[in-house]
Computed example of a mutant assay.
Amino acid sequence: MDRPKVGRKRSEESKTAILEASLELLRERGYGKVTADAIAERAGVGKQTMYRWWPSKADVVLEALTETARTSILERDLGDLESDLRAFLTATFRALNGPRALGPVMRGLMAEAQLDAEFAVRFGEYIAWRRAVLSSLVQRAVERGEVAKGTSIETLVDMLFGAMWYRLLLDRPIGPKLAASLAKLATRAVR
């Protein structure tokens, strides 16, 4: 039998303040220099409030990243695979490398996932969600007849995200030109 949760209910205002504070601090200081204490102080909440809702700093950051992706990296149907890929990758790269760059944050979370097996599972769920969005975009192209029979959607998604992760991990530039190039190459490869 499930036990009822005790304690105060999670305040949406506090949640938003914590997530916004974490992103602000991450952009200012980088993942390694941000602490739970700093996030709590910036958000105007107690550190215990954060730990009541999230098991670690990495989990706070992951939720902030998830919310950002939900609102800024939308899956759009522009009618053809190359356009859909270019739009998705451009939005993804803008979030990672733009004026509010989250690329260094992703590198920090990837490093954290290598050190914390429990967090690695949650980070893997985030990655799987993003892969599913890209896979559905490619599946639409399959249904439109733009993709050759027998093409592995999973391998195509690996190639696209692989290029992104390679550049992120080596701190190489990603942006609209790379998005357009990857979209064109991927479309040619699957025809």
Results as ranks from 00 to 15, higher is better:
V157T: 04
V6D: 10
A148K: 15
L115F: 10
V121L: 06
E154Q: 13
L62R: 02
L178S: 08
S14F: 05
A148V: 14
L134K: 04
M164P: 01
R172P: 00
M110S: 08
E146Y: 03
R130W: 05
L178W: 00
A163K: 00
F93T: 08
G150W: 10
K149S: 14
R122H: 13
T90E: 07
T151F: 02
R191G: 07
E146H: 02
L109M: 11
R10Q: 12
Q114C: 13
E146G: 05
A111G: 06
D171E: 15
E125Y: 09
A21I: 01
Y126P: 00
E63S: 10
E67C: 09
R86E: 12
T35P: 04
V6F: 12
R100T: 12
E125C: 04
E146W: 06
Y166E: 12
L25F: 00
A58I: 06
E13H: 11
E24A: 15
T90W: 02
K47P: 02
L19E: 04
A101Y: 08
L156H: 04
L74R: 15
R10K: 09
D2W: 14
G7I: 02
A87D: 09
M1V: 10
T49W: 03
A132F: 09
T187A: 06
E13D: 14
E28Q: 05
N97A: 15
G46S: 13
G145H: 02
V190D: 01
